[in-house]
Design a protein around this nucleic acid. Sequence first.
DNA 1: CTACCGATTGACT
DNA 2: GTCAATCGGTAGA
Length: 217
Amino acid sequence: MPDAAPLPPDFYHRDVVDVARDLIGCLLMRQSRSGRTVGRIVETEAYLASGDPACHAARGMTRRNRVMFGAPGKAYVYSIHTRFCLNAVSQAKGEPAAVLIRAVEPLEGIDLMAQRRRTDRMLDLARGPGRLCEAFQIDRRLDDFPLTRGTRLWIAPPDEPISSTDITVSSRIGIRLAQDLPLRFFLDGSPFVSGPRRWHRRPIDHRRLHQRNRHTG
DNA sequence: CTACCGATTGACT
DNA sequence: GTCAATCGGTAGA
């Protein structure tokens, strides 16, 4: 595969929902000392600058989410449950919005991904945001890194055209708040997509409700 | 400092 | 389908 040029800053300088949809089919590129890995983005989620309580920026700037408040086109990498998640900061400076890259189809550097993930199963290499980051050796050192340079970590346009009719929307995965917003996009029919393949509503978490009720009396 | 919690994953029924 | 290990981030005393 030839070197693929990165998407320009203007690509990210648009409504975050448009960016999330248009990232489906794009190529996630990672060049590290140990080699190159490439994957086709098959699943994303948008996190909105306003009206979205599930967005990390919903309750103001902190040390963790500060990158979201900056210029579009940068990586926002955060840790959760000992894993990392990769986002592309989008929309506009001062409007903290981002696209979570949830899954890619491994295309190049599959052996390297398998080594990092300690599994040979193709479907376990980069299906899910935490697995993806492990396969691509992405951690908080890449927080605030520009995705528009074509070095270390970048995103390139699709290698083959994606029809908008092949992209499905659903609710987002793994969040407690704002579960009903249609902000998850995925490539219809791809086995490399994580989670449900159609619209769903997550079940009520009774354990958490109980804890919450007990705590608030 | 403590307490709580999660944009997850892997193991298990 | 269910469940919890695990730890950095966050808020608050």
